Every structure is written in structure tokens, then in C-alpha cells.
Computed example of a mutant assay.
Amino acid sequence: MTSDLTGARVLVTGGAGGLGLRTARAILAGGGAVAIADINEEAGAEAAAALAQDGATAVFVALDVTDDASWERASTEAVDALGGLTGVVNNAGIEISDLFVDLNPDSMRKILEVNVLGTALGIKHAFRAMRPGGSAGSGGVIVNIASVAATIAFPGIAAYSASKSAVDRLTKVAAAESGRLGYGVRVNTVCPGLVPNAMGAQLAVDMERLGLFPSVDDAVGAVVSLTPLGRLATEDDIANGVAFLLSEDAAFINGVTLSIDGAMGM
């Protein structure tokens, strides 16, 4: 069932491909409008143009999630292009696998900048736009994309796991601030299970490379064996959950962590 997002105007970071693009499609399917925000300007513009071919409202805004000024420009452009803003999905993220004994400080800093700082700045500018007196000013919803890696201990992804645990905690604090200050903005986290998209496939390859599993198939099989539902997640599984949290059906859901992982992280 498609969530009713009629009138929703949502900015999705990392929207040029993967889960971000699938989330944008779910928003449009629910009757909303979407601004795809991505650092890859060519892919982002092509994705928005393809989505808009069927008459949907889909625009592209360039965004480096780690840069405060870039966020300010992108949020302003999104509000102007969509005629307002009712939601922000902080989806952009990266994963770099390392064993602790080989941990690369530069790689970890990059993960923390994109995944943690990028999400924090997304919350900042979503609040500024959607709170009373902001450029949109009618309240709204923020959905932060974390990971099942925030809830389980899986080898080889310490930096990524730490970053996604931080995203979940940022959500709790943001929900508390929004409520205390009367912003009218709900803030929730989604923790996806492993999805066999480009990032998920690379993770499986990395597990073999690091010597943690004898093969890619063994790495994937380990994830499936830890998942009571017995399969990997799909992008639709995750995108539909995000769309629900953006909708009025979730109007009293705030500050929660929604695990969409087949009970892997229970």
C-alpha cells in the first residue's frame, strides 16, 4: 500500500541513485513532490529529469552534505522550486570497510564527516526551513537513515557502525529539541538491513577481501542466517517505510528508531 503523501514536498539527500532514488520514487508515488539533492550533479540532474517525465514534480539541487553553505543554498533552492518544504530525508552516506588493526584515520574521518556531520547539518537546515518563521514555516518531518550496523556488532565496519549509531542518537536529541522549542517537526530514524544494491554488494566483497569470510556468498549467507525473515532487504522495503514516516499516518511517531531489517538487529 502506498502512503498518502499528497501535498508533501521532500528533499532527499543522496537521491541520484540507490536507496535515495527509490525513496524519491516512493514519495512521488504517494502524490508528493521531491527535490533530489546529491554531490553528483550529472547523475542527480538525470535522475530528476527522468522522474519528471511522467508529469511528477521532481527537481535537482546540488549538495555537498558536509558543507554548511552548500546546505543553505540547497535548502533555499528546494523551498523555492517546490513551493515549500515538509520533509527532509538524510539518506546520503558512505561505507569504507577496515579491520581495526588496519584502520585508516583518513577513511574514518571521511565516514564521520559524511554520515554524522552531513546528517547533523541536514537536521539544522531542515529545522531552519520548517520551524515557525522559517522559509517553509509549517512544520514537517525529518527521516534520518542509519543502519542495522547501529544495532549489531558485525566485523570490519567499525567506523561505519559508529557513524550510524551516532545518527540514531542525533535523532533522539533533535526530536527533543524540536518538541521543547515548538518547531512542529517530527524526527525519526530508519535502520535498514543489508540491501543488495551497489553499497551492499561492495560490503560483501570487502568482507572477503578482509579475510572475514571465505567468499562473497559466505558473507551474504552470514547476513541472511542472522535475519529471522531469511532474506536480504529490498530498496522498496526501506523506501516504503520512509514514506510511511513522512506521511500523516505517522503523525504521532516521533524520536523513534524504525528497524527495517527482518529482525536482524532485534
Score class of each variant (00 low, 15 high):
residue 104 N to C: 09
residue 266 M to A: 06
residue 168 D to G: 05
residue 135 S to D: 13
residue 12 V to Q: 12
residue 62 A to R: 15
residue 126 A to K: 12
residue 187 V to I: 01
residue 103 L to P: 08
residue 241 G to T: 03
residue 23 T to Y: 10
residue 131 R to T: 02
residue 95 E to V: 08
residue 213 F to A: 09
residue 240 N to K: 07
residue 162 A to P: 00
residue 214 P to G: 00
residue 253 I to E: 04
residue 76 T to D: 14
residue 27 I to H: 15
residue 88 V to P: 14
residue 125 H to L: 11
residue 162 A to K: 00
residue 82 L to G: 11
residue 147 S to G: 03
residue 82 L to K: 12
residue 205 V to Q: 10
residue 213 F to L: 07
residue 200 G to F: 07
residue 228 P to E: 13
residue 253 I to D: 05
residue 2 T to D: 12
residue 25 R to N: 14
residue 218 D to N: 06
residue 6 T to A: 12
residue 14 G to F: 01
residue 1 M to R: 13
residue 48 A to F: 14
residue 68 D to P: 00
residue 123 I to P: 09
residue 182 G to L: 05
residue 205 V to D: 13
residue 38 D to K: 11
residue 16 A to R: 01
residue 98 D to V: 00
residue 22 R to N: 14
residue 225 S to C: 03
residue 184 G to R: 13
residue 191 C to S: 11
residue 131 R to D: 02
residue 9 R to M: 15
residue 137 G to F: 12
residue 203 L to Y: 07
residue 148 V to K: 05
residue 229 L to I: 15
residue 2 T to M: 12
residue 112 L to D: 00
residue 140 G to I: 10
residue 186 R to H: 08
residue 29 A to V: 05
residue 185 V to K: 10
residue 122 G to S: 09
residue 123 I to G: 07
residue 235 E to K: 12
residue 35 A to W: 13
residue 221 G to W: 10
residue 188 N to R: 07
residue 77 E to T: 03
residue 148 V to F: 10
residue 154 F to M: 00
residue 108 M to V: 11
residue 171 T to V: 14
residue 156 G to W: 06
residue 124 K to M: 03
residue 87 G to I: 14
residue 23 T to W: 04
residue 90 N to W: 14
residue 128 R to N: 14
residue 206 D to P: 01
residue 190 V to K: 02
residue 152 I to P: 05
residue 99 L to V: 00
residue 171 T to Y: 12
residue 4 D to E: 13
residue 119 T to E: 04
residue 108 M to T: 10
residue 89 V to P: 15
residue 243 A to E: 03
residue 178 S to V: 12
residue 62 A to T: 12
residue 242 V to D: 11
residue 250 A to C: 08
residue 139 G to Y: 08
residue 242 V to E: 14
residue 63 L to E: 04
residue 168 D to E: 09
residue 54 D to W: 02
residue 227 T to A: 02
residue 9 R to V: 11
residue 75 S to H: 15
residue 63 L to V: 06
residue 251 A to S: 15
residue 226 L to W: 08
residue 28 L to D: 10
residue 212 L to M: 05
residue 24 A to E: 12
residue 171 T to E: 10
residue 138 S to F: 04
residue 120 A to D: 02
residue 87 G to L: 14
